[in-house]
Structures are given as C-alpha cells and as structure tokens.
C-alpha cells in the first residue's frame, strides 16, 4: 500500500513515542483532570458547607412559620418562600412567552441577518449586571412610588428573558431542517409547520430553557434589594406590595448581629439551593429525554 514516488520501495518506519512527549501528555492529562476536579470540588464544598451549617436550623417550622421577633427563638421563612414563589412565577409569566416568541421568530422566521442581530442583543442583555437591571427598574417603577412585588418581578423577567430566548433559539436550531422540509413539502403552511412539527419536537428543550431561567432568577438578590426588599414579616400574596424573598432574607440575616440569625441564614440558603438544584435536575432530565427523541 505504501506506494510512494520514491523507489525502490523503502521499508515502513515505525516511531517510538519520545519520553518527552509522554511526559507532556501525562502532565496535561493530570492538569485537565485537576481542573475538572476543582470545579466539582467547589460545588461539593459550597453545597456541603451550606448543608452542614444550615441543617441544624432547618425544621418544619422553619418552612411554615413567619420570622420570630428579633432575639426570640424559633420562627421561619414562610413569607420569603411565598414571596420568592410569587416573584418568580410572575417573572416567568412575563418572560417565558416573550422569550419563546423571540426564539421562535429568530430561528424560524427571521432572515439570518436579523436573527444574528437578535442573538447579539440577547447576549448583551444577559451580560448586563443584575444590579443595573435593578437600578433601571427602581428608576422606572419604584422611584416616586413604592417598592412592589411587580417591580421585582419585572426586574427578574428582564434577567430571565435572554436566558429563555437564547436557549429557545439554540434548541430550535437542533430540530433537523429535514423535518421542516418534510412538512413544507406536504403543502403545510409555515406557521402551522412551526406549531405542529417544530415546537413539539423541541418541547423538552424549550421547557428546559425556561426552567433553567427560573432557577437562575430564583437566586437573584441585587435587583430585589432595590425593588422588593422593604417587606412585612407576614406571609403576603399581594404583589402590589413589596414581597420578601429568600435571597434578600439570606442577605438580611447574614448582616444581623445575632448568631441565631446566621444559622437561619444558612438554613434559608439550604432551602434556596435545594430548590434550585431540584429545578435544574428536573430540567436536565427533560432535556435528555428530548435529545434522545431528536436522535431518533
């Protein structure tokens, strides 16, 4: 087979790997393994320390009761759990439909130029520091009025929007073009093709993107400090007032001089982290399912 131009036919030459190359190879392997290990280690340390320090203050009362007066024992963060739920729910109601529509438009209807511009704008939006978003909403909805759950939700929605829209765009791009062609070649109108073929095929991924957006904003603190932090300790379902939230509560408790409050802060952090982790795991499993389906 080694018919080269050179003649006569030279004997095939095999090389042995040089010791230096082996060393370089080995050390790069070790380094990259270490880097990967480090990332996992950070996660384990963060989650681990939150669990260790938070679990002592965590009990059923902590989830179901409102905060005790300063210095008193017991009490919980029910108001913050409800508040975070409401804030994130309203933010999702705003951001998920708009984000999905942006993603669908950019991937299915816009010309490549427009869709690249949209992607660029969304990337910039997702890079805006959340405190800036908070200040913006503060100036828009809070200054001259009062803090409110709605203001906080709008701020969270702005943070969520690029996450949902970008992930929708990416997920829709995973849908094979051959399916669009198949539908269009049957004489199916474009919008119906998107609605009945593309979206169902991508459903899992679209939901994943939305859930990841929810998980991301559930832990946002900075914008809420400005827009929805001066809240009563009672459980409130009224978003026209400021709502308490778990991240802001963690922040406030951590500032407190009372050691019991620190323990409560850790417990609140544990509640938040468990909630977000559960959401992420749920989203990933949905994503895996839809990817398997796309592979056929």
């Amino acid at each position: 087979m080694s018919a080269t131009i050179e003649s006569p036919n030279p004997p095939p030459k095999l090389f042995t790997t040089s010791a230096r190359r082996k060393r370089v190879n080995r050390s790069m392997e070790v380094l990259s393994t270490l880097a990967a290990g480090l990332a996992v280690a950070v996660l384990v340390i963060v989650v681990g320390s939150v669990v260790i320090k938070g679990v002592s203050a965590l009990n059923l009362d902590f989830l179901t009761e409102t905060p005790a007066p300063f210095g008193a024992p017991g009490g919980g963060i029910a108001n913050s759990i409800v508040g975070t739920f409401l804030l994130v729910a309203i933010a999702s109601v705003i951001a998920v439909p708009i984000g999905l529509l942006i993603g669908i438009h950019a991937s299915e209807f816009a010309r490549p130029r427009v869709s690249n511009a949209v992607r660029f704008a969304l990337d910039i939006l997702s890079g805006v520091p959340t405190i800036v978003t908070g200040v913006f909403i503060f100036g828009l909805l809070v200054a001259g009025h009062v803090q409110s759950g709605y203001a906080g939700s709008v701020a969270l929605a702005i943070i969520m929007l690029p996450i949902v829209a970008r992930s929708a765009q990416e997920v829709l791009r995973l849908v094979p073009n051959s399916l669009r062609e198949a539908a269009v070649a049957l004489g199916v109108a474009r919008w119906r093709m998107v609605l009945r073929v593309v979206l169902p095929t991508a459903a899992g991924g679209l939901i994943t993107g939305a859930v990841l957006g929810v998980a991301r904003v559930a832990g946002e603190t900075a914008p809420l400090l400005l827009t929805s932090s001066i809240a009563s300790n009672a459980v409130s379902w009224n978003p026209t007032q400021a709502l308490s939230s778990i991240p802001v509560t963690i922040f406030t408790l951590s500032e407190s001089p009372a050691p019991a409050d620190h323990a409560r802060g850790w417990a609140a952090a544990l509640v938040l982290i468990v909630g977000v982790l559960a959401l992420s795991v749920f989203a990933r499993s949905l994503h895996e399912r839809s990817r398997r389906r796309l592979r056929g």
Partner: peptide, 19 residues
C-alpha cells in the same frame, strides 16, 4: 402551499416526524 400539495416530494434521508 397549493403547488406543494399537488407536487409531493420524497427526500434523500427518511424524515418521519419524530413526535
């Protein structure tokens, strides 16, 4: 769409709708 309803097409790779 009326053109494509009258003139059907079969593609290179089988492309049934996965859902």
């Amino acid at each position: 769409t009326s053109v494509r309803r009258l003139i059907g097409m079969v593609f290179q790779k089988p492309n049934p709708f996965p859902t």
